[in-house]
Simulated scan of single mutants.
Amino acid sequence: MLVSPVAERNKESILEVLADYVDETCSAFGLELGSGTGQHVVHFAQALPTVTWQPSEISPASQQSISAYIRATKVTNVREPLFIDVSQPWNQWAGLGQSCCDFIVIINVLHMTDQGLEGMFKGVGQLLKPGGIFLAYGPFAINGIILPECNVKLDEMLQARNPEWGLRDVEELRQLANVNALRLERMLEMPEYTKCLIFRRREL
């Protein structure tokens, strides 16, 4: 099992936000895009037993780690990870059907998405049920401004590795969401200079 210290630190604070949107009286289906080690998805599954989770990853090593976490924690509401490349059209996302998700979660991935951001938002808009929630967590820019200095350095480091990488501006994401029937409902300040963006799929 791979271990991410960052995931270990932030999993509980993200869960607290997510739990506000879960109705514990009925079952739901959640998709995590870019599940990484698997630490987040099993943590969410243990705390939210009415949600069945579908993790996804493009990295074989990460897929193996997710499977190992599922076995180690004995969670029964997490499916085996799927290969999903968000740069591909949404109808190629492992056969997931339109309006199948109550929740979609993406954690610390958007700033390392070098292409297909528009396609990813289109996919989220297609896969979420009306009223469904898209939670995006990570460091973000606000109106072109990145704060504090540690996030500025992170942005510079990312762009040095790949010019297409870097902290996304919340306004850019809001506009991408809007054209895909998603509304930015909340922006919450989180520990370590990160934010949770909560988008809701508009009702039909």
Rank of each mutant, 00 (worst) to 15 (best):
M1P: 02
L2D: 03
L2F: 10
V3H: 08
S4F: 04
A7S: 13
R9D: 11
N10T: 08
K11C: 03
S13H: 11
S13I: 10
S13F: 09
S13L: 03
A19N: 13
A19V: 15
A19S: 14
D20L: 14
D20P: 08
E24V: 07
C26Y: 09
S27L: 11
S27E: 14
S27P: 05
A28Y: 10
G30C: 03
S35A: 08
G36K: 05
T37P: 00
T37S: 12
G38M: 04
G38D: 11
Q39F: 05
Q39P: 04
V41T: 13
V42L: 06
F44A: 06
A45C: 09
Q46S: 14
A47T: 10
L48I: 07
W53L: 06
Q54M: 08
S56M: 06
I58L: 10
P60N: 02
A61D: 15
S62D: 11
S62T: 00
Q63C: 10
Q63S: 06
S65E: 03
S67F: 02
Y69P: 01
R71Q: 14
R71F: 03
A72V: 00
T73I: 01
T73E: 03
K74P: 01
V75P: 05
T76F: 04
E80I: 00
I84Q: 04
I84A: 02
D85E: 06
Q88C: 09
N91T: 11
W93C: 06
A94V: 08
G97C: 08
Q98C: 14
D102W: 07
D102N: 14
V105E: 03
I106R: 00
I106K: 00
I107W: 00
H111N: 11
M112Q: 11
Q115P: 00
G116H: 00
L117G: 00
M120R: 01
K122C: 15
K122F: 04
K122Q: 15
G123I: 01
V124N: 05
V124H: 11
G125P: 08
L128A: 04
L128I: 10
K129R: 14
G131A: 06
F134I: 08
F134E: 07
F134P: 03
I142K: 13
I146S: 03
E149C: 00
C150Y: 00
N151H: 12
N151W: 09
N151G: 12
D155M: 04
M157C: 13
M157S: 15
M157N: 15
L158H: 06
Q159L: 01
R161E: 07
R161T: 09
P163M: 01
R168V: 07
V170P: 01
E171M: 12
E171K: 09
E172R: 06
E172H: 13
R174N: 12
R174T: 15
Q175D: 12
A177L: 09
V179F: 12
A181V: 07
A181N: 15
A181H: 14
L182P: 15
R183E: 15
E185N: 10
M187C: 15
M187P: 01
M187N: 14
T194Q: 12
C196H: 15
L197E: 10
I198K: 09
F199M: 09
R200S: 10
R202Y: 01
E203I: 14
